[in-house]
Design a protein around this nucleic acid. Structure first.
Lengths: 328, 328
DNA sequence: AGAAGCAAAGTTACCGGTAACGTAAAAATA
DNA sequence: TATTTTTACGTTACCGGTAACTTTGCTTCT
């Protein structure tokens, strides 16, 4: 420690730095002088390593940032964590459990205060690691009713089901789905399952078009729609993985001269900002992304400070009728 | 260290774990057995703290993630860093130097391998901290020709200037600007300065509409356009801070029955994915965001491994003519 | 058989903080 | 004035790894 250049023991310097008392005013001034002079910064590694202080890292895994939804969730998390003096260690898992597992191993070796993971599916090894680590864990996005530790999110199956029931209720029967596909089951998969159940239960069918290994954004929505419509006849409505894809699909339909909702209905999911400026209000499903992230961070903080909290929080969703599906 | 449960000294266990030799096969098996059994994970804090190994953290500061541009840059950085075994410690600075300074102080106390900072403006204290720390630093986004250490990005003044000259060349003279505004000068400010110079130098003028403390995305583009057009007459073209805002403005103009580009020209910036699905090709400025992030990470890695690199990389931009400005 | 060489360990010290305890001098009290 | 208490420090040990050095026991060679 450089502050012994002030001619005191490092213990005294440590006391001054932490302001815990037990030193004279004279000594304090002397030490602080040297601190300024040398631009001394404490080494947090040492404190945390010695176990004298808890770590302030929180590992946060996110599938990808090309999807606005996750970018907002991450923003919510990091902002809230920052307020409480915690730092985010980011991990982009690219929708694969193997990447997640690797990242978990690495982050755990850094002795984090906790982990926030997107999704409720993890590799068996990852689950072992997590259980063994003993650190607080929040699983987000896909509500896990029996979480490893804590969970915040929504029930994606139900949200898909509700949308399916709504569209069937509007009289649609051949409702296409356009989304992306990855190696790992995820929330979108669950949503689609719920959607399919509702539509098929209502006497309809769901032709699917999955854009493999693509990011759920505008252009895949555009070309996915093109492919879907080329391979199926009489589709009367399309449900998209999210609003960005729905917007891409919307533009494709418009470019083909299709009237919305007269010729074809369009439904998105997520209620992203872009929906606020479309010529028609997009039928969608509102999910409070930023709040979800903030809640995850708050649950983590609460757990770290020993406050009692319920381990599962359903953040809820709300169907937005919009005008891109018919409303007879 | 738990592996001494195997009945060997911790040094022997350490040797086995690192595979550096000097132990018998029997001992190796014994130790590895215990490792598996106990789910042992090495404590990186200890290794790095002792100085026996370099840290694998890289601090990355980003203004906000609501702006897709930065989300993509971050994605590029994190992916590339991950490939080389480094972790991103995120800092969202909310466009303020004070936040950045606080974050820098905290991250430096964690002994990071390096820092990647967005922008070339930093508080004086921050600059002191950075200089003193001795860690490699990459300033991104806004090209800094005399960087603290390294810099990757584009010359925003020039990119604004080029766009201004282009629009003047298309015959526009009263070209509005819609963007956001924050306490700190940033790349958008610089861009606007270049734009203003070109337009005014060409005999035009630039009425401005700045959305204070808002995120540069769709809706501010929409309402900013409304305000701009309400407070100025005869605006023949609008230049936006980015494509998302331009899209919001585009929608506002369409909703008002304005024809594009006949009644009003629209120019964005950044060439975001959304531009790929619009009914008209948006006039914009292409910037390789993902590549920018990757390059930043590569420069950092190169510096860390002692490879010689040039400290300033101009990643370049390219004007996309599009069809939202007239093309006579 | 004795010396030399080598493989397979063990020992010690250190990184930079802080807890816990020790101590000398000054201040308060008897 | 003698004794206790308090203030203002200093010392030692520890966190979990690893570098550098030492020790032990077994081969191998002369």
């Amino acid at each position: 420690m450089v502050a012994e250049a002030a001619g005191v023991s490092k213990m005294t310097a440590s006391r001054v730095l932490r302001g815990e008392g037990g030193y004279s005013e004279k000594t304090k001034v002397l030490v602080m002088e040297k601190v300024d002079q040398l631009g001394y910064l404490p080494n947090k590694l040492a404190t945390v390593f010695a176990g004298d202080q808890a770590s302030t890292f929180v590992g946060v895994s996110i599938p990808d940032l090309g999807n606005e939804v996750f970018a907002h969730v991450l923003e919510g998390i990091d902002r809230k964590l920052g307020v409480f003096g915690h730092q985010t260690v980011l991990g982009l898992t690219q929708h694969t459990l193997a990447e997640e597992e690797n990242w978990i191993r690495t982050v755990l070796s850094w002795q984090p205060a906790g982990l926030i993971l997107t999704g409720r599916f993890h590799s068996p090894t990852a689950i072992d690691l997590l259980r063994n680590s003993g650190v607080p864990i929040v699983e987000i996005w896909d509500l896990n009713s029996s979480p490893l530790d804590m969970s915040v999110g929504i029930n994606h199956f139900d949200s898909g089901f509700d949308m399916g029931r709504y569209l069937v209720g509007r009289g649609y029967r051949k409702i296409g789905y356009v989304g992306t596909s990855h190696d790992t089951a995820n929330a979108a998969t669950t949503r689609l399952a719920g959607f399919g159940k509702a539509v098929e239960g209502g006497g309809g069918e769901v032709p699917k078009q999955l854009c493999l290994h693509d990011t759920a954004t505008y252009y895949p929505g555009y070309y996915g729609t093109e492919q879907l419509l080329a391979s199926h006849r009489n589709i009367d409505c399309i449900f998209y993985q999210n609003d960005a894809m729905a917007f891409g699909g919307f533009q494709y339909c418009v470019s083909r001269g299709l009237r919305i909702p007269e010729d074809i209905g369009i439904a998105g999911w997520g209620d992203l900002p872009i929906a606020s400026v479309l010529p028609q209000r997009l039928t969608s499903m509102h999910v409070p992304h930023l709040k979800l992230g903030q809640t995850a961070a708050e649950m983590m903080i609460a757990r770290l400070s020993g406050e009692p909290i319920s381990s599962v929080t359903d953040i809820g969703f709300k169907l937005i009728p919009g005008s891109t599906v018919r409303n007879f």
